[in-house]
Computed example of a mutant assay.
Amino acid sequence: MSPTLVIVLIVVVLLVIAGVVYAVRASRRKQLQTKFGPEYDRVVGDADSRAAGERELQERQKRVAQFELRALPAEAKARYSVAWEEVQIQFVDAPAEAVSTADELVTRLIEERGYPTGGYDDQLANLSVQHATTLEHYRDAHAISERSKNGDAETEDLRQALVHYRALFADLLGENPVRSEGAVAPDSEPKVPSQKINDHDPDVAGSRPDATSR
């Protein structure tokens, strides 16, 4: 075999290997983008490089795969739905306290589903694997809740926090926690309720195709 032919074969082999590596990386990237949605862009944007961000997302998947996640039985779902309706009723007279209660209720539900409930950032990372579509709701709700603790949140802010908490709550619960007879389009602008936050809020089921009214 001539030296020229050997060089050509080596080049061909290297090109094939490079093509395989590229295809594997592209496939992995597509899977991560599909799995994490907007969270993919957020993590990659915050990382030193795209590769570092993707490694972070893969590590999240490996970590969550070790959790003993569990679906809730019907009795537990009913109990949580009742608890959520009580939070909405509480909002009428004590908006700030209702938001605080909603935060505690969501944390309790996260724990009952099998997720660790340590630090807030760890909760976000863990939830992003299975609940990426409602993760931004959790961020917004948490931010308002923190402002509320300092007395910097208006009633409308608190109402929005409850709407955001409900989005994650419904996602974790697997159904809309509020009994309803109808729903307003998700892009409609809700009013501050005079009696309670109800079905005239934007139905969070609109952000999750699999959420249903009870």
Results as ranks from 00 to 15, higher is better:
residue 2 S to D: 09
residue 3 P to V: 00
residue 6 V to Q: 12
residue 9 L to Y: 01
residue 10 I to N: 13
residue 11 V to Y: 11
residue 13 V to Y: 11
residue 16 V to T: 08
residue 18 A to C: 04
residue 19 G to V: 00
residue 29 R to W: 10
residue 33 Q to N: 09
residue 35 K to L: 13
residue 39 E to C: 05
residue 39 E to H: 12
residue 47 A to K: 14
residue 47 A to V: 08
residue 49 S to L: 00
residue 49 S to M: 05
residue 51 A to I: 07
residue 54 E to P: 10
residue 54 E to M: 00
residue 59 E to T: 09
residue 64 V to C: 09
residue 67 F to S: 09
residue 67 F to Q: 01
residue 68 E to C: 08
residue 72 L to A: 03
residue 80 Y to E: 08
residue 82 V to S: 13
residue 83 A to G: 07
residue 85 E to H: 13
residue 86 E to R: 11
residue 90 Q to G: 06
residue 91 F to C: 10
residue 91 F to Y: 03
residue 96 A to E: 10
residue 97 E to H: 11
residue 101 T to V: 14
residue 104 E to Q: 13
residue 110 I to P: 06
residue 110 I to F: 00
residue 114 G to C: 03
residue 114 G to Q: 01
residue 115 Y to K: 00
residue 115 Y to V: 04
residue 116 P to W: 09
residue 118 G to I: 06
residue 125 A to Q: 01
residue 128 S to I: 00
residue 129 V to W: 04
residue 130 Q to E: 10
residue 130 Q to I: 03
residue 130 Q to S: 06
residue 134 T to M: 05
residue 137 H to E: 04
residue 138 Y to K: 05
residue 143 A to C: 02
residue 143 A to G: 01
residue 145 S to P: 11
residue 145 S to E: 13
residue 145 S to A: 15
residue 147 R to K: 11
residue 147 R to N: 14
residue 150 N to P: 05
residue 150 N to H: 12
residue 152 D to R: 15
residue 157 D to H: 12
residue 157 D to R: 02
residue 159 R to K: 14
residue 160 Q to K: 12
residue 164 H to W: 12
residue 171 D to R: 02
residue 173 L to R: 04
residue 176 N to I: 02
residue 178 V to C: 06
residue 178 V to F: 05
residue 179 R to W: 05
residue 180 S to D: 07
residue 183 A to P: 08
residue 184 V to K: 12
residue 185 A to C: 06
residue 186 P to Q: 01
residue 188 S to M: 07
residue 188 S to W: 06
residue 191 K to I: 12
residue 192 V to K: 09
residue 192 V to D: 03
residue 194 S to T: 07
residue 201 D to K: 15
residue 203 D to Q: 13
residue 203 D to Y: 15
residue 205 A to K: 15
residue 208 R to I: 03
residue 212 T to R: 11
residue 213 S to T: 07
